[in-house]
Design a protein around this nucleic acid. Structure first.
Length: 863
RNA sequence: AGGCACGUAGCUCAGGGGGAGAGCGCCACCCUGACACGGUGGAAGUCCCGGGUUCAAAUCCCGGCGUGCCUACCA
């Protein structure tokens, strides 16, 4: 029920430098107050940022909390009462509010616990609720100040009314939906009896409140009318025919009935022409006394009855099917009724202007930037915000009415009327829109209107993470209020994340039954796997299609890391790892280089909100580099009893790299990494406070990366031959290498033991450059040729087929480059390095082709 | 009615002017002393269609087609 709001400013490095702050929220709450996918995604992303920044040494403040969800919560408690056969009116206002607090005490904390379960590392001691005393003080302060400045006013206007919730709604809370309806052509007889004027309407029941009929002054059809007054069908009231350019000549009949009390445009026209407004419905959408014979009928029933009567009287000329969009209450989906009513409004123009400028000037950056356009669009066309709600649960508007007519708006309950001195004052019964208090969240949660140290330190906050569905409801309003009352934007970045949908792209909803419950997912696959999945799929600007299959994939990854840890710890034993070796092996240099780079890349990706890249980078490294290669390579030294020094050195590297891997993974999977961190010898504090391993430039080693690449390619070539030739994995095969250049041979010779062990080969044999080992399968690599003698292992036709396949593939790959190099325009205009690259590529490819062709010829000769 | 996204391997999607990528699925082989939630190898794409810009387009521009979403007072 409660909506989650979060706030955080963060940062402050010890140097006092500003860093990111965080804020957050979530999407529409549901009656059970359960954590859903939207919350999970939102909070996972914020948590990733917070954990990462904390590891960098920033002081992070992530303030959690919820809002009071006025209408929704009241509905739930009313339903509860209804089941006891009571209404809120039976209880009275105070008792009812008491009851809501009880409800909140029982259910309100549920979602907070679920957030904790998700691993959200908020500052839980600072949890806030919009109905808290402090936040309520801020609400009052803001209301009074806006009123004093004329930015809040009370007046009669058309508002969106929910006949079921019995309250006014803001424009945003009225959700437009396509509805199949009818366009009814109704005859309004001229008063003088000379025929009739035909009016087209989608809402015939509102004719009871008509006070005029309008036509466009330019419309040729209506230049010479037989009379300037028509009679309202069914009621017989006289209606003037007015002329206004607002009326379109090309829609319907060009004649528009004017019902000022039940349509915003009609209201506008009514004001312009000084027409009366007749409200014909009560708060429940039932026709009132103004409806004469139709009084007491529900609005939908009234439509049916009236249409039948019109038909009977020959006044319904025709009726056609018509598809149009109609507002519905965002809480209960009841069709909204535009009704003229006295309400409180915020004059948003001046506030929106500043909020618009702040983004245009880049003081607040919206990511991805495409949303800035949407924000501008809304801020530019914004209309005044109806903030009063006719419900009880919420911040009661601090306005008092005196019997003399005076309106007093004040922080505290006034003793007497300043105008007449009377003490007969009654407070406004309406409460404020929940979003009014949510709009103050970035500063009200930190003690405003007091000037607190938190505000000084964390305002403006660094980042707000939210879904686009709430950009206007919340982000835009926080911008307006923050700038107005703090003089500065509430956050420097707004990250708009995707929506979580089901596997087939449908929006998850209870009614569709396609909801995946994050709590069940966490039970089934573990929170870490779930979080990792969310991060890995959170590409900017695209919705996430969630399915259990995908989560299972990342569950496997968590398991892989767990097993890598078992292996690591098994080898480390109880001792604290020693210093990194002075003379590391090639694989040691390589993995240190890689982990250093990856930590930097992951960090950068997180900072730029590229969560999917960050997660994939970590995944790729963890599984395919650390586990697939390094652990296998390290076994060589680890198991070598004959060289204890080497063993010791390898243990040190293994411990270091694994420790860094855990830290890189920590923001995504906090639970497993913490658990493993605690078991790692030599660690004591939480991994949360361990330093991010992004500061090891000195270990980045391009030479090691290149050399290791060479070794990996040779191993890959032998494995490929084995696989393609169908050689049993257990068979140890001979291998002959032929290197182009001493350097290459040196590297490979030094790594002979690794190649033998990972490719399952006999001792490496060497052929002179250009020499052709007989009866062998071969592979051509950039710097080296690899041959696997096949005598007795396989038949040569298989090798022949394999080589032909390889040649065809290479040829296909080279075609585009060859074409470019024969293109004069390319040679003349393309950048030198691009040309050089293409040349090198072709040269390398052709060299491979030559060697493969030699192999092919040789193999064919054995046939 | 306007606006915004998206269309890439069987599925879900990254990428975004110069060598088509990942995960899952699929095929083959393998219980190798961390892990079968595993290992090794492999197959697989007209990057929606049509124009244009460019030496070079999956990528930029224009126009289609298709899908999704948001905003809107034409009764």
């Amino acid at each position: 029920m409660v909506r989650l709001l979060g706030a955080g400013g963060l940062v402050h490095r010890r140097s006092g430098r500003q860093g990111p702050g965080l804020l957050h929220r979530d999407s529409a709450p549901n009656v059970t107050g359960q954590l859903h996918m939207g919350h999970a995604l939102n909070n996972t992303m914020q948590d990733i940022m917070c954990r990462y920044k904390r590891m960098l040494g920033y002081e992070v403040l992530w303030m959690p909390g919820t809002d009071h969800a006025g209408i929704a919560t009241q509905n739930v408690v009313e339903r509860q009462l209804a089941s006891e056969g009571k209404s809120r009116h039976d209880l009275g206002r105070e008792a009812f509010i008491e009851r809501v607090w009880e409800w909140r005490a029982e259910y309100g904390g549920k979602i907070i616990n679920q957030l904790k379960r998700l691993g959200a590392s908020c500052d839980w001691s600072r949890e806030r609720f919009t109905m808290d005393e402090g936040l309520s003080t801020a609400v009052r302060e803001v209301f009074v100040r806006l009123y004093q400045e004329g930015l809040i006013y009370r007046g009669d206007y058309i508002i969106n009314w929910c006949p079921r919730c019995h309250t006014a709604l803001s424009d945003l809370e009225s959700e437009h939906e396509e509805v199949k309806g009818g366009l009814y052509h109704i005859r309004y007889p001229f008063k003088n009896g000379q025929g009739h004027l035909v009016v087209a309407t989608t809402r015939p029941e509102t004719l009871l409140g008509d006070t005029a009929v309008a036509v466009n002054p330019e419309d040729p059809r209506y230049q010479d009318l037989p009379d300037d007054t028509v009679l309202l069908p069914l009621l017989g009231r006289e209606l003037p025919i007015i002329r206004d350019p607002y009326v379109s000549t090309d829609f319907g009949t060009g004649a528009l009935k004017i019902t000022p009390a039940h349509d915003p445009n009609d209201f506008m026209i009514g004001q312009k022409h000084g027409l009366a407004s007749i409200r014909v419905m009560d708060d429940s959408g039932t026709i009132n006394a103004e409806g004469g014979p139709y009084a007491g009928l529900d609005r939908f029933e009234a439509r049916k009855v009236m249409l039948a009567d019109l038909e009977k009287q020959g006044l319904l000329e025709k009726q056609e099917d018509y598809l149009h969009s109609v507002g519905h209450c965002y809480r209960c989906k009841t069709m909204v009724e535009p009704i003229l009513s006295k309400q409180w409004f915020v004059k948003v123009g001046p506030l929106a202007e500043e909020a618009l400028k702040a983004v245009q000037e880049g003081r607040t950056k919206i990511v991805p930037a495409q949303w800035e356009k949407t924000y501008y669009e809304w801020m530019t066309n914004i209309r005044d915000w109806c903030v009063s709600r006719q419900i009880w649960w919420g911040h009661r508007i601090p306005a008092w009415y005196c019997s003399c007519g005076e309106v007093i708006v004040s922080h505290t309950t006034p003793e007497a009327c300043p105008a007449c001195g009377s003490s007969d004052l009654t407070q406004e019964t309406d409460v404020l829109d929940t979003w009014f208090s949510s709009a103050l969240w970035p500063f009200s949660t930190m003690g405003w209107p007091e000037q607190t140290p938190e505000l000084a330190k964390f305002y403006p906050t660094s980042c707000l993470v939210t879904g686009f569905d709430i950009l206007f409801f919340w982000v835009a309003r926080m911008m307006m209020m923050g700038i107005k009352f703090m003089g500065e934007v509430p956050f420097t970045d707004v990250y708009i994340h995707a929506l979580v949908r089901d596997a087939s792209g449908q929006k998850m909803s209870k009614s569709k039954g396609n909801v995946i419950d994050p709590l069940i997912v966490m039970d089934q696959f573990g929170t870490d796997a779930f979080r990792f999945t969310l991060a890995a799929f959170a590409a900017q600007g695209r919705d996430i299609k969630m399915s259990e299959e995908r989560i299972a994939g990342y569950r496997n990854f968590v398991n892989k890391i767990w097993n890598a840890a078992r292996f690591t710890m098994m080898n480390l034993g109880e001792d604290e790892p020693g210093e990194l070796p002075v003379e590391p092996t090639l694989e040691d240099r390589w993995i240190l280089s890689r982990v250093s780079r990856v930590a930097q890349e992951v960090g950068r990706a997180i900072e730029e909100y590229r969560f999917n890249e960050a997660a994939n980078l970590a995944y790729q490294f963890g599984w395919h580099e650390f586990c697939d290669w390094y652990l296998e390579l390290a076994k060589g030294s680890l198991y070598d009893q004959g060289d204890p020094k080497r063993q010791e050195a390898t243990r040190a590297v293994l411990a270091e790299v694994f420790s860094r891997l855990l830290r890189v993974l920590h923001p995504f999977m906090p639970f497993v990494t913490e658990e493993l961190w605690q078991r790692l010898p030599g660690t004591n504090d939480s991994i949360m406070t361990a330093p991010w391993p992004g500061d090891h430039d000195g270990e980045i080693d391009p030479q090691a990366e290149h050399d290791m690449g060479l070794v990996m390619e040779v191993i890959g070539a032998v494995r490929n031959i084995r696989g393609e030739m169908g050689i049993n994995p257990g068979t140890v095969v001979p291998v002959i290498l032929s290197a182009q250049g001493g350097q290459t041979r040196q590297v490979l010779e030094a790594q002979a033991a690794r190649i033998q062990s990972l490719a399952k080969t006999q001792e490496l044999a060497w052929a002179a450059e250009g020499e052709q080992p007989a009866k062998s399968a071969g592979a051509a690599l950039p710097e080296v040729s690899v041959f696997v003698p096949l005598e007795g292992l396989v038949d040569f036709s298989a090798e022949e087929a394999r080589l032909e396949k390889e040649l065809a593939k290479l040829d296909k790959e080279l075609t585009p480059s060859r074409k470019k190099l024969t293109n004069q325009g390319f040679l003349a205009k393309a950048p030198e390095e691009v040309v050089a690259k293409e040349k090198a590529k072709v040269a390398e490819g052709e060299d491979k082709i030559i060697r493969l062709k030699e192999n092919l010829a040789r193999v064919q000769s054995f046939r």
